[in-house]
Each structure stands twice: as structure tokens, then as C-alpha cells.
Design a protein around this nucleic acid. Structure first.
Lengths: 153, 153
DNA sequence: TATTGTTATACTCTATAACTATA
DNA sequence: TATAGTTATAGAGTATAACAATA
């Protein structure tokens, strides 16, 4: 049993096996799956991620969340405002210029649900790989991601 | 030597080790690197990819490229028009409704340069990983990407 | 009827610039 | 001077709908 050439694609494709292209495809598949899983809660992946981060860092300031997730200040503002408008988190001034973020009880319930959904989503993919490949995958992804440090703002 | 906790991030972050998040980060790093490497040619990664695909499938029709790369017809039109306007590829009717794409000689020169840039870019990352991890990474990415098949249009 | 290519359009994500207020 | 938050805006990337021409 070999064959397997051009079963679903009639074109020769030397781009498909490239590392960057494979990474992009795999990432898109997982993001789409997570987005679909979170759609029931009317939350996007980035919003779920913010809830988790605020949940484990109560009182953290908005800028720290943005720096941790690689989201610029200008784009954090509407994200946090949206979550606050839905009653999921509250902004309380600490500094005069900084806002401390904490989850409301409703936000914490949402956070627990998001974590549950993310756990199940990850488990679905991890079940497809053996432990050795999973460990190698994590190592490789960490090393690749480390190449893109810096970026002040 | 352990330490390593919160050196660059003052926040606890249980999202960072999640598979989907690591994939997204690694993919973004590689895409940004490739984008920077291709910027000298004033080509975006997707444009370079189209040049490669047309180069190895001369006379293929526009729709096949779109299907292979997961780009919708509506979004292929301006991409191909842009490359044609720059003299990198030519569109010749075959069907009356289908357009066969071929690289011009200038387009083929660009294609060779793109492949050279992509080779160097990949090599830079592959050098960071041993053969075992690279093989595991490719296997894992292929398996993950396979979970997101379908999508008719 | 299904496919190809095109245009228009909209929504998301991301980026910069400019502004206010504060440390 | 540097930082925090906000607003406005612009550019990609991606999505649907509608259309004309063709198979």
C-alpha cells in the first residue's frame, strides 16, 4: 500500500511539506476547532485566554495581559471593554493610570468552562500522538517560538 | 540550574504550554520570518507560494491553485491579477471559463529566488532541531492538519 | 445544474499614530 | 521621559453574496 500521490490534490505541491506551511496549516486547524468549541459560549479564543490569565493573576493590569499574549495596548482596550461590558471581569483603578483586572463570579464560571473546553480540545489532538511525539512536538514548538522574541510594543 | 520562572513574564501563564497556543506562536514566528525574508522581493508568502505552485504545474487553472492552498475563488482573483500585472505570470484561456496559469521568464526567475529564500529560512529553523525531533514534528503536524479536512468552497 | 472567474462587501486581526493622564 | 489606557484609522486576511459566462 503506497500510492497516495495526488488523491485529493491534482497538483504537484512541494510547498505542502515545508515546515512553515505545515505549521500554519496545523495551527489553523487547531484554532478553528477551538473557535468552534468556544462559539457556544459566544467567546473567541483570545477572550477565553484573557479570562484564564486574569483568573490566575487577579489584580493584574491590562498591559501585563497584553504583553504576555503579544497583544498591543490599542487592541487590548476593546477586548477588555467587551468582557467588562458582559460582566465577566471588572476594571478597578490602582494607579491613576493603571487598571487592575479581576474576574467577576460570572467571569470565573465562564473561565472554568473555557478551561474545560480547552482541556477537551487539547485531549482530542493529544490522543492522536504518542508520548514521544508529543514531547518532541512541544520541544520543537518551544524552540521555534523562541526565535521570535523581542518586539517592544 | 532551574529557576526560569517569570523571567520575562511577571504573570502566571497556564495558557502558554497549551498545544494550540504553542502552535499558533511557532507558526506566527515562522510566518513573520518568511515575510521579512521575502519583503526584499516585494512578495508576500502567499504570492511566493503561488509562484512555486504554478512553476511546478504549468498550465494549471486558477481554481486548482486556490483549492490546493485553501484560498477561495474570490480571494484568488486579485492575487493572480496582481502577479500578472507585475509580469510574473500569464493567464491564457483554455476553457472559455478557465484560465491556465504559466510563469513568465521573469516569474520563473522570481520563483527560483523564492525557493532559495524559503530553503534558507527552513534551514535556519531545522538547524535548531535534531533529526528525531524534526521527524516527530513533521509527523505530528501532518496528523494535526489532517483533522481539519473538508471545506467544499 | 455545477463550475470558473470576477466584483463588491464585510468582518476579524493586527498595526501605527495621536491624545490624555499619570508615574 | 516613560508608561497606561483610549480612540481613530489603515492594512492584511478571510468570508459571503451575487453576477456573467461556460461546461
Amino acid at each position: 500500500m503506497d500510492a497516495s500521490l495526488s488523491l485529493d490534490s491534482p497538483l504537484s505541491d512541494t510547498v505542502a511539506p515545508r515546515l512553515g506551511y505545515m505549521l500554519r496549516r496545523a495551527s489553523a486547524v487547531m484554532m478553528a476547532g477551538l473557535g468552534a468549541a468556544l462559539a457556544d459560549m459566544a467567546l473567541r479564543p483570545v477572550e477565553g485566554t484573557i479570562l484564564i490569565l486574569v483568573g490566575e493573576n487577579p489584580g493584574c493590569i491590562q498591559s501585563d495581559i497584553g504583553r504576555t499574549l503579544g497583544i498591543k495596548r490599542a487592541n487590548m482596550a476593546p477586548l477588555v471593554a467587551g468582557l467588562a461590558a458582559r460582566g465577566l471581569l471588572s476594571k478597578t483603578p490602582v494607579d491613576g493610570r493603571s487598571l487592575a483586572l479581576t474576574l467577576t463570579s460570572e467571569g470565573d464560571a465562564a473561565r472554568r468552562q473555557v478551561e474545560s473546553i480547552m482541556d477537551a480540545h487539547e485531549a482530542r489532538f493529544e490522543a492522536l500522538l504518542n508520548e514521544t511525539d508529543m514531547a518532541a512536538l512541544r520541544d520543537a514548538l518551544r524552540i521555534i517560538a523562541q526565535q521570535g522574541e523581542s518586539a517592544p510594543d
